[in-house]
Amino acid sequence: MLHAILHELQTASGPMTLRQLSRRLGVQESALEGMIQFWVRKGRLAVDEGAGGVTEMRVCSGIVCGLRSCPGPGACPLTLKTPARFRLSVPGRH
């Protein structure tokens, strides 16, 4: 099962959700998360950090104050929180 995750990712033709993969492998979704965590620790899967940090981005009066340090009350229109994403690590990059 653990190795099947890597295999599925190697042979997949497009993106997959955790739920789809858990269905395919017949594993509970939360258990799949645990397995993915295992590979992340081993460096075989890489986590893409989402744009989470950017949600804190402030733009005051059109002037960018950088991350998390804007004194003004305004925030730039539309920020986006993205879910966690995993992909196979490029060999030798971890």
Binding site: G14, T17, L18, D48, P83, R87, L88
Partner: peptide
């Protein structure tokens, strides 16, 4: 190329 993605959808 980059590999396929696994996405956690809320």
């Amino acid at each position: 190329e980059t590999s396929a993605l696994l996405i956690e959808v809320p």
